[in-house]
Design a protein around this nucleic acid. Structure first.
Lengths: 240, 240
DNA sequence: CCGCAACTATACAGATCGGTATAGTGGTAC
DNA sequence: GTACCACTATACCGATCTGTATAGTTGCGG
């Protein structure tokens, strides 16, 4: 019901990504992530990209639009990266752990300073800002993904225990387990950005593993060709 | 060893908080949190506080110093708020849950947009920035607090189980349980700021409750007058 | 060879940035 | 009564901000 089509579809980029525009977006993405959005001016972006401001404004029209493209592109890349890593995993438990593995790999080479969406949210207070929907959209999508996968875990448990009504010890309903996984995941990204302790994503993965395997549910041999519950979450390309 | 005296002491404010300075700091704190640090100029702060820029610079000397005072004061207020809420709880389990309860109450009236430290960290990339130590200092302090309290849980478990060597099912060492609690807590604050789902702090508290009470360890009747493990964490006033 | 797309180069606009300078006012304490 | 403190008022500084204007250059497809 509320899984993949969360709020609204992220409208695809309508600007033509010419070579100059691509260089500008690359430079802007790096600068925005490293120093923050408000701390980076368009002059710096143009200079770093080897592009004139004229080109910048011919392609993007405004700085706000550059910000939108920055976040939309990053969101898209992350979802593609995650989908690639998920499509080889079959069981719900394996897929959940694969999300954390993917996040760790992604963070290692893309997000040493924390989640770009969370960081952008710290600088964009107005919910009517066009970037706001991208930020919350990705997070809602991640929550839906975790919840879908948690549903698979629940189903496994029910099958094993002979159809108890879910809510009991280790996580209760799928919605609740999904939210807990979401908290661990978000917390890990933040902790990594702050550098509080070593490898928080691995720590979150371990805790997730305990959580979903607490009652001894399936670690290996995960039943068939991926239950339909999380089908659209993994393959859903750019929507919501 | 590494608990309360983490890195270095946060040097106390050395500026005289005259009425005008206090009004300026109040205005700056509100504006910084609501719109971000870089998005707020000193002219706006002065105008909102009903103070001239001259007064601002006579008191604080620079915008950077205003930022430092903003974060230091908020850090101080949070620690005092938390200490107040913790001093009535006696068992380690109760104290852990009290942290989440305090966080929820604090967020309700102070942090609808997420943790101010995390948000500030998104805007301050330079680790040599004087505010950086305040940010990481609070987070390290929180981790030490959780770890201290987790040690109390571990001890309770060992007592109950007849001195097994800790690491086993539900969290293993105190350090590990402390880190997991940290992840849940940080994740909850982020999720609340993003408004992804309802009351993430309560969700985190529930999960924490399951975590520390997994083996049926003490929910009520928590053993005497607060074990020495977490003594300095609760009462440590402004240090670390 | 013409037209168009993508670009460079440069200069400028109006506003705002953090920060400073000068001059003056009200209150209070010794 | 004077010296000091906290403050107002205002004007200014150079730099940077987002955004625009004019003019010219390259390369490529029909």
């Amino acid at each position: 019901m509320s899984s993949s089509t969360g709020t609204s579809t992220v409208e695809p980029r309508r600007i033509s990504m010419t070579p100059g525009a691509q260089r500008a977006l690359d430079a802007a993405s790096r600068l925005f992530y490293e120093h923050g959005i408000h701390a980076v001016g368009v002059d710096l972006i143009a200079a770093e990209a080897g592009v004139t401001k004229k080109t910048l404004y011919d392609r993007f029209g405004s700085k706000e639009q550059i910000v939108v493209e920055y976040l939309a592109a990053r969101d898209e890349r992350w979802r593609a990266f995650l989908a690639e890593r998920l499509k080889t995993e079959q069981g719900a438990a394996e897929r959940i752990l694969a999300v954390f593995d993917a996040s760790r790999a992604w963070a290692d080479e893309n997000s040493p300073r924390g989640c770009s969406m969370v960081n952008a949210h710290a600088e964009i207070s107005d919910p009517s800002h066009p970037a706001y929907a991208i930020i919350t959209g990705q997070k809602k999508w991640m929550l839906a993904l975790f919840t879908d996968l948690a549903r698979g875990i629940d189903r496994g448990r029910d099958r094993q225990r002979g159809r108890q009504q879910g809510r009991e010890r280790g996580g209760g309903s799928a919605a609740q387990l999904g939210r807990t996984l979401m908290l661990l995941h978000e917390g890990a990204l933040v902790a990594r950005g702050l550098g509080i302790f070593k490898d928080p994503v691995a720590q979150a993965r371990e805790e997730a593993s305990r959580l979903i395997g607490a009652s001894g549910a399936g670690s290996a041999g995960g039943a068939g060709t991926a239950g339909g519950a999380n089908r659209e979450s993994a393959t859903g390309s750019t929507s919501a």
